[in-house]
């Protein structure tokens, strides 16, 4: 069965590798699309620049906050301001547990906020639960027009 992709927005290659490892460890088979900064992420989501021909609509976005060029909160703001992308599930995945980040994220419409633990075992557990919820239990919103639904991709 074809899965809709997961968009991972992460600038730190270590974290990217570890996240991918954690996803793999949890047997999550969705294609993973990685964006290394906010600008790249926005290009992907709005199908501009190198991503103009993209057809799949991601099932969930895992978004870091501290990013080069455009930071995570700005990405979230732009996503929520868009008529089509407003319904896209966005999970904040970050090192920070500063209250202001937490408050601002939820205020801008984040669906979840997960702080990456230092202990890798705990991280794997967090990713497992994340995958279980967003990829299995949660019914994703239907893809907007012009982007493929899971069945059609």
């Amino acid at each position: 069965m074809d899965e809709r992709p997961i968009l991972l927005v992460e600038d730190n290659p270590d974290d990217e590798a570890l996240t991918l490892r954690a996803l793999a460890k949890n047997k999550i088979r969705n294609p993973i699309q990685v964006a290394r900064d906010g600008e790249d992420a926005l290009a992907y989501l709005f199908r501009t620049g190198p991503w103009a021909g993209r057809v799949e609509f991601p099932q969930v976005v895992l978004l870091d906050l501290k990013l080069p060029k455009v930071d995570g909160l700005e990405v979230l703001r732009r996503v929520r301001a868009d008529e089509a992308l407003r319904v896209l599930p966005v999970v904040i995945l970050t090192s920070s547990d500063e209250e202001r980040d937490l408050v601002e994220s939820y205020r801008l419409g984040a669906n979840s906020y997960i702080r990456k633990p230092v202990d890798f075992a705990q991280f794997i557990e967090a990713v497992r639960q994340l995958g279980l919820y967003w990829l299995v239990l949660n019914e994703a919103p239907p893809a907007p027009r012009g982007q493929s639904a899971p069945e059609g991709g």
Partner: peptide, 22 residues
């Protein structure tokens, strides 16, 4: 400073721990 610590100081630790585990 603490915002930076919160973000930046923990990231390498996660790498050390994660890759040790790997």
């Amino acid at each position: 400073f603490s915002y930076s610590v919160s973000h930046d100081l923990r990231a390498p630790l996660r790498s050390i721990d994660g890759f040790s585990q790997a």
